[in-house]
Structures are given as structure tokens and as C-alpha cells.
Design a binder for these strands. Structure first.
Lengths: 142, 142
DNA sequence: TATTGTTATACTCTATAACTATA
DNA sequence: TATAGTTATAGAGTATAACAATA
């Protein structure tokens, strides 16, 4: 099953567009209880607490912007600032229980949206997607 | 090749995340000559001219916001306003040749990024993606 | 009177520069 | 002196309300 190079161009374009459209629909049609930049921070904090500087770097915004974003999330009651255990200059931002509930709920909603779409597909189509998912994950991680 | 329901949950989550990560990387690592909301409008105008109201609806922003976006693109020389042929209240926004060059270049860059990732995959993996792309397109269109 | 588009005004997110506290 | 974080200020995008031109 060789894939000609000419088709590789088409595949790159089609695959990119399909991923972008799915991504766009997931964002647009999912729950909108927090703004995208806020949600992105909540997801980052799901596994571990982080300093504002770390959050700013991974989100590619300035530290003052992250201060503002964190302030908003603190006012919403979704994150809390904690003193850093070893360096008093630093601050650790962590999810509150309310913040964790919100982020898990939004992620569940997004998966539900995707599940509803998948439920209309044939077993053969699902099998194709199941095999492709591992490859896509590898592509995204490169 | 039956797919158990429990795996459908996992598949929905994994597939959604993979698509979102690819989409995110395409946006972040591609060319950044125009802002995302500007680029989105340029893409819309690639095939046909459109009125500000049409652009506002499809981009899901208010008409004043679209006026501002169009103003910015006019200043950049990427779009031009033309009088509507039959209704003098309306305005048609269309790509200039410079605008067309810019949007085509950005789209080429994005495909190049995806092409580079695909070029490291095995023929078998490419075959999987080729079959999956049609299914993904159907999912995105639902 | 309804519709299209723009202008007026305010709010939010972003950035750079300046400042405070700590290392 | 360097680093982490915040505050000060300004620029850009968005929205609602008000306005002008046309149907």
C-alpha cells in the first residue's frame, strides 16, 4: 500500500483541514463557562500546580497577562495562590475543588460532543479512526 | 472488527485531543503575518467576495467588529471595498492580489508543516491516515 | 419602516516598562 | 545584581447603542 508523493500533499492538506474543523467545532459548541485563555490555564493545572511564570511560558503570554488571567480565575474561585515552599519570591497557582469540577465538566462535554459524532459511524469507520488516533498522536507529538 | 462502547469513550477523548493538538501546533508554528481573526477573513474571501454582514455572521462577531477587522485589512492592502452591484446599502469586500498572495502563502506554510510530519511516517501509517481523513471529514461536517 | 454599514463608547486581553520583594 | 511577581499604562479586539444611507 504505497502512497505517492503527490497524494502526500493532498493528504497533508485534507488531514490538516479535517483536524482544524473538528478542533474548531469542539471549541465553539462546547460549554463556554470560562474564556478560552482561562480554560487553557485550568487544564494545565489539572495534574500539578504551577508558578505564574511557568504558566505564562507554556501559554505563550507575558507574565503580566498571566497575572491578570490568574486574578480572574481567583475571583471566580477556580484557582488559589499558595506560597512556594522553598522560594518566597515565587507563587504556586493551584486548582480549587470548584475549579477542578469545572474543568472536568467541560472536558466531559467536549468528549460527549465527539462521542455523539462517533456513535453514528459504522464499525469499519470506527476501526479506521482507532488505528489513526495513534498515528495522529505521534504526528502531534513530533 | 467490533468496537466496544467503553473504547468509544477513550477513542472520543484520544481523537479529540490529537486533533486539537495538531490544530494548535499548526496555528502556533505557522506564519504569523496577520492576526488569526484577520487570516480567517482572508480565507473566507478566497473563493468569493462577501459583505461585512456575511463575514460577521460566519465569523460569529458583531458587524462593528467586522468593520474594524476589514478596516485593518484594507490598511494592510489585503482587501478592498467595492460597491454592491444591485444594492447601494451593501458593500462587497474582496481580496486584493496582495491579499491573495498572503493567504495562499500561509496555507502553503501550514501544509508544509504537516507534510514534514507525514514524511517521517511509514507507508502503513500513511495508509491509515489516508483512510481516516475521509471519516474525519465526515465527523467534522456532521 | 426595515436593512446595511459605520461611528461612539466602554470593557477585556494583551504587551512593555517600572516597581516591590526575595535570592 | 538577578529573579519572581505585580502594578501602571497603552494598544488592539470585541460588544452594545446610536446614527446615516438606502431599500
Amino acid at each position: 500500500m504505497p502512497v505517492p508523493v503527490t497524494d502526500l500533499t493532498t493528504l497533508a492538506n485534507d488531514l490538516r483541514l479535517a483536524c482544524q474543523r473538528i478542533s474548531r467545532r469542539v471549541r465553539f459548541e462546547g460549554t463556554q463557562v470560562v474564556a478560552p485563555h482561562q480554560f487553557s490555564v485550568l487544564v494545565r493545572l489539572r495534574d500539578t500546580a504551577a508558578t505564574p511564570t511557568e504558566l505564562a511560558e507554556v501559554e505563550r503570554v507575558s507574565t503580566p497577562s498571566m497575572t491578570r488571567t490568574v486574578n480572574g480565575l481567583v475571583e471566580l474561585g477556580y484557582v488559589a495562590r499558595q506560597p512556594h515552599p522553598s522560594d518566597r519570591r515565587q507563587v504556586l497557582v493551584e486548582l480549587t475543588s470548584a475549579g477542578r469540577e469545572v474543568v472536568e465538566q467541560i472536558l466531559r462535554d467536549r468528549d460527549t460532543w465527539m462521542m455523539q459524532r462517533l456513535s453514528t459511524l459504522s464499525p469499519e469507520q470506527l476501526h479506521v479512526l482507532q488505528e489513526a488516533t495513534d498515528v495522529l498522536r505521534e504526528v502531534a507529538a513530533q
